[in-house]
Design a binder for these strands. Sequence first.
DNA 1: TTGATATATTAAAATATAAGAATGTTTGAA
DNA 2: TTCAAACATTCTTATATTTTAATATATCAA
Lengths: 113, 113
Amino acid sequence: MRSLGRRIELLKIIAHPVRVRILDELTKGVKCVTDFEEFLEISQPNVSQHLSLLRRYGVIDYYMDGRLRCYFLRDPIIPDIIKLLNKDYIEELPAPACCPVTKKGKYPGKRRH
Amino acid sequence: MRSLGRRIELLKIIAHPVRVRILDELTKGVKCVTDFEEFLEISQPNVSQHLSLLRRYGVIDYYMDGRLRCYFLRDPIIPDIIKLLNKDYIEELPAPACCPVTKKGKYPGKRRH
DNA sequence: TTGATATATTAAAATATAAGAATGTTTGAA
DNA sequence: TTCAAACATTCTTATATTTTAATATATCAA
């Protein structure tokens, strides 16, 4: 089981527009670097850097196919995160019903609502 | 419906150890600043900075209770993210079955596995 | 064995983020 | 009307991230 600290680090790694698009694509199947270059509008070295970052953190991996590096998802949290990012949330959370007590509750009987 | 870009920004905001702990606490109920100071081992101004960042991005909000600011969750994605972070993933994703085709599939019949 | 394709690495510049220190604001209680 | 509690803001410094540009490597095909 991975630590929470590790998970948060992972979240940080994922939280980048280019990397999310990469991971989103990879949830649909294997892709090679050139495939990514086609739909991300960034340079080849930059694509490569993002891929190697993701690989360094164990998020993705690749196998060789001729001279192509075929990247695929490795960390099982990714599909769940992608699903979350694409999910529709129409409402805000309801505000707390009525002034729940915090530890520091110095003003009982003086609640404003 | 919020844009994906907004969601990614949000993810970035959340992906910080202190802020995750704040949000984790808030999934359990309302807390005021001093409550946070107690269990986060950081200075009051730093707590305040994190809270105000979270509020600026609409993740949390507060109501006043006497002189206390009672913070609560506002963005409905948060409980889901916290759940994800705490979820157990025991296995890696299975490697792709056998060399699926990338767009650039120049080497058919020469697959290595 | 040479050229082209596919991809990586490195260094530098630009930018963003985090933490700490000092100080400011607001409000209730005395 | 003053004090103290609760909290925010601002500025600075330290550090991390991102991008760009240039260059390198590895492999297949001819």
